[in-house]
């Protein structure tokens, strides 16, 4: 082992790497917000009285969960322009992450909704609220609380999956590090550093979720 470690290219590239971290954060946060919207909307459709809506959601979830994310993101990147929508790599990556995370979120949130006792729905209906109001004001929060740990791990996974977006050269950490590596050939040093950065990003994400959970789900339960 007479390999000489040389972190100079990493240190020189640090501003770029940090911007890459920000890019990853941006992808992850926007992707998650979209995933939550898709997840909640999807659960409403998935549990609606309309058979077509239920089957559409089942199909959507199956397709997304049984195909590789890399293929999904390429598909979107080349399919959207055909549909007349020209987007930069980064927005495309956000949409792809949102759709992918959304499919998983649908199943997770549905589990949460099912864990809420039927009595909650009945009490809401008996008080004269409509089904949609019962879902929005009574079911949703306790359901999200019940599955928040699973949702957290799913979204940390989504954060890490965002590295795949480098394949369409979205602006994020992996793409930045690939550039520095190919300019410097310092593969070990670059990926050692990037690994550390991803660890920190994951940890920050978990802190963020824990903070949010402590705020939003602060009510006591027996």
């Amino acid at each position: 082992m007479d390999y000489q470690l040389d972190f100079t290219p990493v240190i020189d590239g640090l501003p770029d790497l940090l911007l890459g971290c920000l890019g990853t954060f941006l992808l992850a946060i926007c992707g998650m917000l979209l995933a939550i919207v898709i997840g909640i909307g999807g659960v409403i459709l998935r549990t609606s009285p309309y058979k077509a809506a239920r089957w559409a959601m089942i199909g959507f979830v199956e397709v997304i969960r049984n195909t590789p994310f890399l293929v999904q993101i390429f598909f979107l990147y080349f399919a959207l322009p055909l549909a007349g929508l020209r987007l930069d790599p980064t927005p495309t990556a956000i949409i792809a992450l949102g759709i992918n995370g959304g499919a998983y979120a649908i199943e997770i949130i549905r589990g949460g909704v099912q864990s809420i006792s039927k009595g909650q729905m009945e009490a809401g209906l008996a008080l004269g609220l409509h089904k949609a109001q019962v879902f929005r004001f009574i079911i949703l929060k306790p359901a999200l609380r019940a599955i928040f740990p699973s949702l957290t791990s799913q979204f940390v996974l989504l954060t890490l999956t965002s590295s795949v977006a480098s394949a369409i050269s979205a602006y994020e950490l992996t793409a930045v590090s690939q550039r520095i590596e190919s300019d410097s050939f310092r593969s070990f040093e670059v990926y050692f550093t990037v690994t550390a950065f991803y660890l920190v990003i994951s940890w920050l994400m978990m802190r963020l979720f824990a903070f949010f959970s402590a705020r939003y789900f602060a009510y006591p339960v027996k």
């Binding site: 909650q120 009945e122 008080l127 004269g128 004001f137």
Partner: peptide, 29 residues
């Protein structure tokens, strides 16, 4: 709206305070 119901298991909404439990339906319904 004319018929109130009280259940064996209370079915209060755990994420709302006592006051909010009582205010929800009058505001929303």
């Amino acid at each position: 709206r004319e018929v109130g119901m009280v259940f064996q298991q209370f079915n209060l909404f755990p994420h709302l305070t006592v006051l909010e439990n009582c205010m929800l339906a009058p505001m929303r319904a």
